[in-house]
Structure formats: structure tokens, C-alpha cells
């Protein structure tokens, strides 16, 4: 049996040295602030942050045991626990970092085409999706290529937000258009160079396209799914029972 060290009225943490993975995004701010302001130290923890560049990189780090915890898309650890994403590795959520904060953006060209089909109906997400459905139908009749939309990772709320929104307009996300995964920093560029017609992503990539006049932000994720959990900090379940 492990004996628990008691100092004063607080328990010493079972693990002192922790490596936490993160991506350089706005929602990693709590981790960075906690490190810089010494909040981890106040709790008796010695934390180092490992800055990764892809969600796949964080998943590998968690599943290979190189990371003790990580900021992840809320769906990733569920997929990991179920063995759908990489090696089946049970994980538990330590805290939710934020809710919502994503948006759907389309290219200026597509926006204008949607307006043509339904000038007055761009007010609600459902009306927008229906206008998009008409553009897709027109595209099909004229034999044009499928429209191309992007999200950030197969196991992300972005993907499901996008699919749900498309479906409200009667669009079949599997067949009526092409869904891709594009790293967020490349999205605005691909919208500009017409490799993409739209995407669902967090900030600043919606506003960036809008401020350059290349894209129009249609709706925020809150309009589609109020309070959707976006990013959580997750740790390996093997740590779970031992580390409250």
C-alpha cells in the first residue's frame, strides 16, 4: 500500500513531475498562465509543457506514455478509449478548458452564390444551410465539381458541427460534398487559393479570412450546438485512480 504524505493540511501530489502536451492555440492559455504565474508550483507540481504541432502528435505522445496529460479536442480521448484513434488507450477528463468558440466560414464567392439563391434567408444557420443545398444542387445540374469543406481532425467537435449544420439544410455530408481535414493555419490560405469553399474552425482563422475580404463567417458554433465542449485536458486513465 502506498502511504500518503501529509504536509500541513494538504496532501503531497503522487506525481510531482508532469509533462503536459499542448498546441499553440488560444485555449491552451490556462496551461501557459498556470506555468508562468507559478500556479503549478503552488500545488507542489513541477510541470513542463510540450508544444506540439498536430493533434496526431498529441495522441501519439499520450498513447506512447511520453505525455502525462494534454490539451485535446474533446472527442479525441473518447476515440482513444474506444480504440478508434490509434492504440486503444483509456483516458479520463481532468477539466474542460472551454465551450464553443468555433465558427463556419465560406469563401466570398460561395457566399455570393448562396445569396443569389436566397437573398433574404441568410439570417439563421438553417436558412444558410438550405441556401447552400441549392448551390450544391445547381452545381450538380451543371456538372461542376463538388464543393470542398474542411475541419480540423477526424475526431473533433468541428467535424460534427459542420456535418450537423449541413444536414439541417438537407445536405448529405458523405456524398453531396467533399469533407477534408486541413491544419487550421493553412485554411485561410486554401480558401483564398480556392482549394476550399468553406470550413469549421476556431479563431483566429474565421476572422482572418473575413478581414482579408476572402471569406464570410456564417454562424458561430453556439448557434448550432450551445455550449459544445471544445477542448479538455485529458490524462491517461492509468493515472486516474492514483491521482485524484
Amino acid at each position: 500500500m502506498n502511504s500518503t504524505l501529509v504536509t500541513g493540511n494538504t496532501c503531497a501530489p503522487e506525481l510531482r513531475h508532469l509533462t503536459l502536451g499542448m498546441l499553440p492555440l488560444n485555449d491552451a492559455a490556462p496551461l501557459v498562465v498556470a506555468l508562468e504565474n507559478g500556479y503549478f508550483g503552488d500545488e507542489g507540481l513541477d510541470v513542463s509543457l510540450s508544444v506540439e504541432t498536430s493533434w496526431a502528435g498529441l495522441r501519439d505522445g499520450m498513447q506512447l506514455g511520453l505525455l502525462d496529460g494534454a490539451q485535446m479536442l474533446a472527442l479525441m480521448p473518447l476515440a482513444s478509449t474506444l480504440g478508434l484513434d490509434g492504440r486503444a488507450t483509456p483516458m479520463i477528463s481532468a477539466m474542460t478548458l472551454n465551450l464553443g468558440g468555433n465558427a463556419i466560414t465560406v469563401s466570398q464567392t460561395l457566399y455570393e452564390r448562396m445569396l443569389e439563391h436566397d437573398p433574404g434567408a441568410m439570417q439563421t444557420p438553417v436558412a444558410q444551410a438550405k441556401a447552400l443545398a441549392r448551390v450544391i444542387e445547381m452545381q450538380r445540374q451543371t456538372g461542376g465539381p463538388k464543393l470542398r469543406f474542411a475541419n480540423v481532425y477526424p475526431f473533433s467537435s468541428h467535424r460534427y458541427l459542420l456535418r450537423y449544420w449541413l444536414a439541417t439544410g438537407g445536405i448529405d455530408p458523405e456524398n453531396d460534398l467533399e469533407l477534408r481535414v486541413v491544419p487550421p493555419p493553412l485554411m485561410a490560405y486554401q480558401l483564398e487559393s480556392r482549394k476550399l469553399d468553406g470550413y469549421c474552425v476556431g479563431e483566429p482563422w474565421n476572422r482572418l479570412a473575413a478581414s482579408r475580404g476572402q471569406g464570410r463567417v456564417l454562424c458561430g458554433s453556439f448557434d448550432i450546438w450551445g455550449g459544445e465542449p471544445r477542448k479538455n485536458i485529458w490524462c491517461a486513465r492509468s493515472l486516474g485512480p492514483a491521482v485524484p
Binding site: T53, S54, W55, A56, D60, Y153, V181, P183, P184, L186
Partner: peptide, 14 residues
Amino acid sequence: AALPSRDTLEHLGQ
């Protein structure tokens, strides 16, 4: 491994 494009490969793998 430092390229964000890995996530695109993940999707292709799916």
C-alpha cells in the same frame, strides 16, 4: 513529425 499536415494524413488513414 513537426508538420501540422499530419492531421490530414490521419483523415486519409480513416
